[in-house]
Design a protein around this nucleic acid. Structure first.
Lengths: 147, 147
DNA sequence: TACACTGTTTGTAACGATTACAATGTAAGA
DNA sequence: TCTTACATTGTAATCGTTACAAACAGTGTA
């Protein structure tokens, strides 16, 4: 099924006049198969073996291309570096404050909040972003530690 | 009323054994009166006149102190730099994609989402974060421009 | 009052993520 | 094949943030 996602993504790119290069193919493929919301550097290091000459700049360039095409979302958390997430269906993230793990979960959507916000502020609403923070089961097992 | 907020904040700090310095007083005061969700640099430049010798490091140090004391929230958006928000009541932000303006709005809370997320993922939930993106009325007035 | 202790500020250097830029490479069309 | 436009690469530069060491208070105690 991820083959379908990849094909769809490539088609979407092609239709906007973006050239499909081996690097772009590889980055997209990696992001689709990844479950870990990788940073640009994660992607770079993962593909280093296959593309020994690839530059970090290429990763950043293409992540921007994908973002503009709506294929990829950039997640800016407190960490120093952004994480990137292949856009599939509407889903939200829950993030472990202890180990940083990010898990997806689905929720019907928050149209009501958007409507209220639009009504109160006069904004024209495009989209929203929601994250939940807590502690994952793995870290709950260990003894708590003061931050 | 912002006097009360300031006093409360100072009391809260004092009670946790944090010393109240003129710089800390000024930073807190600025944040409470500010409506613009300033960056560390905004704060630094605003207080430069009053404290010609103040260091950027002091601003960062104290924002971290305030954050740990729960007085201030750090907002990491796509921009390069973090923005800081004095914590009052529960409110959310709606952000203009065009001019970057951030407006607060209130909403009853999203306990239900937290519960569902906790149930599905097994996380122990601490808090969440929600932002809505769109275009503010001012920017709607101008003609739209492709990104 | 003098002293020691602890937390604070300051200045600067260092770090690390991201971007800009110029040079080189490559695909597609005429 | 030639041309043109887009891609990649490598590197230097930028910029927000932090680390660190030195100078500075404020507070309590003798």
């Amino acid at each position: 099924m991820s083959e379908v996602k990849l094909k769809d993504a490539l088609d979407a790119l092609k239709s906007t006049g973006v050239r499909i290069t081996p690097q772009r193919h590889a980055i997209l493929e990696y992001m689709i198969h990844s479950t870990t919301h990788p940073t640009a550097d994660d992607i770079y290091r993962a593909l280093e073996k296959t593309f020994p000459n690839m530059s970090v700049a290429t990763v950043y360039n293409n992540l921007r291309v994908f973002r503009k095409a709506g294929l990829v979302k950039e997640l800016t958390y407190g960490d120093s570096s952004s994480r990137f997430d292949f856009v599939t269906n509407d889903h939200y993230h829950i993030i472990c404050n202890d180990c940083g793990k990010i898990v997806d979960f689905h929720y019907p959507g928050l149209d009501e909040v958007e409507h209220l916000a639009s009504h109160v502020t006069g904004f024209q609403v495009d989209y929203h972003r929601l994250e939940i923070y807590g502690t994952c089961q793995g870290c709950l097992g260990k003894t708590a530690k003061a931050q």
